[in-house]
Simulated scan of single mutants.
Amino acid sequence: MMTERLYAQITCIGDEDLVSKVQNSDKRYKFIYVFCNYCQASQVRYPEVVKLIHDNKDMDSFFICAQDSSEIAEYVDTCKVASTMYVINQNRKRKMVSFYNPIKATCKFLKKQLGVDTDKMGASDFCVLDKDNKVIAQTNWAMNDEDYFKLLKESLNIRSAD
């Protein structure tokens, strides 16, 4: 029996284009995930999250990362799960010594561009927006895995009257 292998698609995208893609989604819900491949929480949670949300027809998913696209390509080759990975901030100036923090950069993007309160968000955290782009569910760095996945599963079963 042949096993289907699922791979991520890496899409380098500008801030305005990604904001437009999120805000203009015709899905009832938008799932936004902060990704960073060197964060242990992301390494553990990301594959499980992708598997759980994969078949949700009411939700568009946006896995967002501000790392170099080459780092992400290397990670998804080993991870073998399918999602579109939106890689932002690729045109930033590179320095020999850099204190650049891709997790902070991704959260800053979410706060500035989509109005998400990211003060307690970090890598592997997610938020769910409704069709009007309002946050209706959100995780934070202080949540344990049990509460995190409980909220995720509840978010996948959200049903509201239009």
Rank of each mutant, 00 (worst) to 15 (best):
D147E: 10
N101Q: 12
F126G: 02
V50G: 06
Q67F: 02
F62I: 07
K27D: 07
V128M: 10
G122N: 07
I10G: 09
K120I: 11
F126Y: 12
L110T: 00
E154M: 12
K131P: 04
V76H: 00
I72K: 01
W141R: 14
E48H: 12
I64C: 08
T11Y: 11
V87W: 05
C12V: 15
Q138S: 11
K112D: 15
P102D: 06
V44L: 12
I103M: 10
D119K: 10
R94S: 02
Y33C: 06
L151N: 03
C127G: 04
K150H: 07
Y29Q: 01
L52P: 05
A73K: 10
P102V: 05
P102K: 07
F35G: 01
R45L: 01
D68A: 00
C36S: 09
V44I: 11
F31N: 04
E16Y: 10
D60Q: 11
D119L: 11
G122H: 00
M85S: 02
T78Q: 10
L52N: 10
T118S: 10
S20C: 10
D147F: 00
D26Y: 15
K111I: 02
K27M: 11
M143P: 01
K27E: 11
Y7M: 13
S20P: 03
M96G: 13
I136S: 02
F35Q: 03
K57A: 13
Y33P: 00
K30C: 07
D147Q: 09
C107R: 08
F62M: 00
F99L: 13
Y46S: 04
F149E: 07
A137M: 14
S69I: 12
S42E: 01
D132G: 04
M121T: 07
Y75E: 01
Y148E: 01
V128S: 02
S70N: 11
Y38C: 12
Y86I: 02
I88K: 06
K30S: 15
D119F: 06
K153T: 15
A66Y: 04
Y46W: 15
K30N: 02
A137K: 09
C107Y: 09
D60T: 09
E71D: 15
C12S: 12
S20A: 13
E146V: 02
Y33K: 00
K57Y: 09
L152H: 03
N24W: 06
P47S: 06
A142T: 15
N140C: 15
V50M: 10
K57F: 10
S25F: 04
I103L: 06
A123V: 03
Q23E: 13
A137Q: 14
K120W: 10
N101D: 15
V19I: 04
C65D: 13
F31D: 00
F99H: 15
N56A: 08
I53R: 03
Y46N: 05
V44N: 15
K93R: 12
E16Q: 15
C107I: 12
L151W: 01
F109Q: 00
N101T: 06
K104S: 13
S20D: 10
V81W: 07
V97L: 10
K95F: 14
T139Y: 05
K104Y: 15
D60L: 07
A105F: 05
